[in-house]
Design a protein around this nucleic acid. Structure first.
Lengths: 209, 209
DNA sequence: GTCTATAATTCGATAGAC
DNA sequence: GTCTATCGAATTATAGAC
């Protein structure tokens, strides 16, 4: 007799998943120390005790959602950077597109990751073989080939990330500096999405010295 | 009889100043919630009670050091961006030089400011008339003149900041991705210091569309 | 001004009923 | 699995001596 739990609950998530999502939001917004387990419980619509029942401790919960957030982050670009049938131009377009899509939905994610990596740099290395993902990628090989002699190709990797990620990291500041509201800033971001690949390519042609 | 306090103490600062410096370091490193007043007191070499004697509360102390950090930040660039006898090329060089000099000494400052502005965006606007400092500057006028039609000149302001600040914001991540130790990363930064102005200028010439 | 000792509060975690 | 109630540790802030 399956009276209790049919598979009708497509909309409502279970408590465990709701806690994880609430934790992701709040940790990203306020950091580890700035987030109270009570707030996570409330946002998830459950009780404080249940949080510990599922995840044992605040720190374990943090580690878990952090790991999953980073894995999402990496998965989203791994397939692009290693596609060997894609020109550098197209690859740049897809990468930028991909970052923008992710960060527009989760605007706090970049700053969250930066913060966590500053206080705990080892996590990136141990939990995700990120070294190979980027520097060993086909994308990086393509950059190397186009880089003017005497310039470290890693610079252009940094430039790509800088031009793409910084507008999200510094959004609150940039909106004030530029005296823009949300919609005006979104328009700026749309413009960037098209321009960044061109700018990167223009930098690669700066062969002077 | 001035036996107690002659003016010999040129090296040692007073307690108040030592507390402020310790607070700046620790808040920048661990954020507001992640910093304990006990640690600030210890780092300043004084007692916990004395901190409250001078600054009333943790929050008041935070507001104070945050404000002063931002003012330092702004003062360091205000004189450059408004110099009307400096070409855009030279101005870019000086700006980048200036940022690098500041951030090499205080590597946690950029992330600190980004974090604070995300949780409290009004502070920037109210406490420092930052709008006029940047968008009303001679520097921004020079960028406008060189910007290809149909591109918002604010984009190049963002690019300048992105290329300059991001390597400090993301230093821990970039060191791992690039498999670099501290000295290797410093070398990368040195190379950037020379290249960033060229890259910006190259972008300005990308007039296509 | 600077200290020791402690009050007051907050927060993570657990016990135990249902 | 989920809740209420509570413990215990950590932390900010203050009282009061010197």
């Amino acid at each position: 007799m399956k009276t209790k739990k049919e598979k009708i609950e497509t909309v409502d998530l279970g408590a465990e998943e709701r806690i994880k999502q609430a934790a992701t939001r709040l940790f990203a917004k306020n950091g580890f120390a700035g987030t109270r387990t009570r707030d996570i419980a409330q946002e998830a619509g459950i009780n404080l005790a249940l949080l510990n029942y599922y995840f044992r401790s605040k720190e374990k919960l943090f580690d878990l959602v952090m790991l999953e957030a980073m894995q999402d982050f990496m998965r989203s670009i791994a397939s692009i950077v290693n596609n060997k049938d894609m020109s550098l131009e197209v690859k740049l377009e897809n990468l930028v597109q991909n970052y923008f899509q992710l960060f527009l939905v989760q605007p706090d994610l970049p700053l969250f990751v930066m913060n966590e990596l500053r206080t705990n740099p080892k996590r990136l290395e141990s939990h995700l073989g990120i070294k190979k993902v980027i520097v060993g990628s086909h994308f990086f090989e393509q950059i190397k080939k186009r880089t003017p002699k005497k310039v470290n190709p890693f610079q252009f990797l940094m430039n790509t990330m800088a031009l793409t990620v910084f507008p999200f990291l510094a959004a609150p500041m940039l909106k004030i500096i530029g005296d823009m509201d949300e919609s005006a800033y979104l328009q700026i971001l749309e413009e960037r999405k098209k321009k960044i690949p061109q700018w990167i390519l223009a930098q690669l042609l700066t062969a002077k010295s």
